[in-house]
Amino acid sequence: MAGLEDLYREIILDHYRNPRNRGELEVPPATMAEGFNPLCGDEIQVYVEVRQGIISEVRLGGQGCSISQSSASMMSTAVIGKSTDGARDVMRDFKKMMSIHEDGLDGDATSGQTADRPGASGLGDLEALRGVVKFPVRIKCATLGWNTLDQVLDLLEVE
């Protein structure tokens, strides 16, 4: 049985209590997108500024639950300093972790590893969110910030 400690790992609560990179950036030069979770009404604004091909700053606005807030907070620290392609790689890895596999549901969510990629996801702290897949209704919370970042990256490509 999945317990609360699978979901609310200490690092998650830490990012919830002390969210990183809260605030706004001026648009332009930054690019912003807004995301909604239609299930619960949560909303998020993701601001990204890119300098010389590198994500120099990310700021987050809006409100949400501990999972959506901490996931976005960790996302911001994970993508700052990366190229937009690098950010997309992290996003892909994260979304893969959030997709429900049979063994992902039955397995030990606290191990932070999957059989095919032992400990080598490069997701760092974000691994703590792996337990979310055991609570399928919360996956949308964990991916809200990422889907919004995805929109920002699309906007950046158009520019």
Partner: peptide, 19 residues
């Protein structure tokens, strides 16, 4: 947040709605 609250309530067998 209501999502977090209802998640903890669920662990106590208490079914409420968040949203």
């Amino acid at each position: 947040h209501p999502h977090d609250l209802s998640q903890v309530l669920d662990q106590h067998g208490v079914c409420v709605r968040a949203g």
